[in-house]
């Protein structure tokens, strides 16, 4: 595999980097949101997290 993509490396790798960052940010935001909600829900239910 030619890593320079025949001189188009910036465009090709840039495309996949954008996709990776966008999808990775979506997953990370969801994990963070879930953690926050779990803390809230546990507090409401009286669950001490142990």
């Amino acid at each position: 595999m030619d890593w320079s993509m025949g001189g188009y490396g910036f465009y090709v790798w840039g495309s996949y980097l954008i996709a990776l960052v966008a999808m990775g940010a979506e997953v990370l935001a969801l994990v963070k949101r879930t953690k926050k909600l779990r803390v809230q829900a546990n507090r409401l239910s009286g669950f001490n997290g142990k």
């Binding site: 969801l30 949101r33 879930t34 909600l37 779990r38 829900a41 546990n42 409401l44 239910s45 669950f47 997290g49």
Partner: peptide, 20 residues
């Protein structure tokens, strides 16, 4: 996440507490 945010009832909370 949306269900947890909107339906903060005992059933969901209990499920979350159990999962944690």
């Amino acid at each position: 996440c949306i269900i947890l945010e909107r339906e903060q009832n005992a059933a969901v909370i209990a499920e979350v507490a159990e999962a944690a």
